[in-house]
Nucleic acid binder design. Sequence first.
DNA 1: CGTGGCTTTGACGTCTTTCAAATATCGTGG
DNA 2: CCACGATATTTGAAAGACGTCAAAGCCACG
Lengths: 232, 232
Amino acid sequence: MTFNEAFERFSEQYLPAGAPAALMHQLRTLASLHSLPRRHMTTLDVARDHLVFIVSGPTKLVALDAGGNDQIIAFQFGGDCLTLPRKGLHTFRLVAIRAASLLVFEAEALRALEQRAPVLNAILARCSLAALQRTRANLVAMGRRSATERVASFLLSMREIEQVAQGDGRTLTLEMTRKEIADSLGLTVETVSRQFSKLRELGLIATPSRTQVRLSDPARLAAQAGAFAPAA
Amino acid sequence: MTFNEAFERFSEQYLPAGAPAALMHQLRTLASLHSLPRRHMTTLDVARDHLVFIVSGPTKLVALDAGGNDQIIAFQFGGDCLTLPRKGLHTFRLVAIRAASLLVFEAEALRALEQRAPVLNAILARCSLAALQRTRANLVAMGRRSATERVASFLLSMREIEQVAQGDGRTLTLEMTRKEIADSLGLTVETVSRQFSKLRELGLIATPSRTQVRLSDPARLAAQAGAFAPAA
DNA sequence: CGTGGCTTTGACGTCTTTCAAATATCGTGG
DNA sequence: CCACGATATTTGAAAGACGTCAAAGCCACG
């Protein structure tokens, strides 16, 4: 992954077709490409806000705990964009689930550009809004709901993500471990594993490999996911 | 609360000082003032996105369940702004905890204006980002954490809100019921009540009335709130 | 072929929910 | 101003769900 390729993807996705060359050039100056190996977390200055474009690779946004326990806020995949806030009440970090490429902008520098290039605000607004939708959805998934409901609706929600679902939309390649699923659902590894076993015994899913899940019966899986579930 | 007062507050808070009169006028045309009585929810067209400015009154953003159970996404107070998304995976509604005034814009109409008034994007970006921070914080509060930790950190987080904390920042006027607290923390009313009792017995809080809470010992309360807690 | 990490399974303890009932508080009308 | 009814809160007891601890199994990789 070269810088040029990365920037190309970013501009395709977020910049309007007729963006002035001067702006493109400015943005190019402000961007930096980071290769994040599997399991590694960003080492950005926690005193500053950043805008991060996920060029490729599955990543997780986590809130860091004093102990080694992460709380996963959201998963992001190639093409997603998010703001990584400076250290506030919590410290947030972006972690690569598998090797990932990130295009990073300092928010401060972008704000300085906003005056001359108002289109930047549109980008920021779009990113924040999308991140907000993802986060709200996760919050709903963590409300007072049973472990079964959480796992079932987690699986159904993964189906909506292009980079996870295979052709027929029934076979998922979850790049994340059980622990990561557990951290995102507010459960323990063991509980998640037991739920997988239960859904397997019910014939609702199959797990051909460690990371693959086949949704054998999405309709009945949706029934297990309860009232707040994504549609089957 | 008149429309003019409401719009005045909105523009003070979100429009830059030198906003052109033409834009102000346009926005004025697009805004509508809603008075939401206590317990009532918005009856906006669920097929459209809206931008809502909370002029006054505590409100909650809820995801609606098939049963009567709400999942509370976030609380908002006067001066906050949020996007109320159209019906997607979930249906979101804004509910007044006490009588509230809202200034509502249709997102569609705002988008049409964006071309000519790029400052609108800055407003939207600001609103979304603030809402995102609130929601992420809530998500952290709901991770794998005990009931005590949730309630303690809920109380500490309420202290940060101007309209909830009294002069010394130790006496809170929670406008919400125990059920609303429970819904926002993913717990039951009874569990929340038991946590209040426990914290009372430990001498960390006092509850002079149904809605008032005095944080007698914020430092020890923070200790109860655990590793992810807001500082005391 | 062995090793290390991830996943699964089991047994048990604890915490939260559930169901039920008593008590406190607030708003209203007398 | 007080009494009453409606609603919110608190408390108790029991059941169930999830977490913890421990061990075994599985898979990928060297």
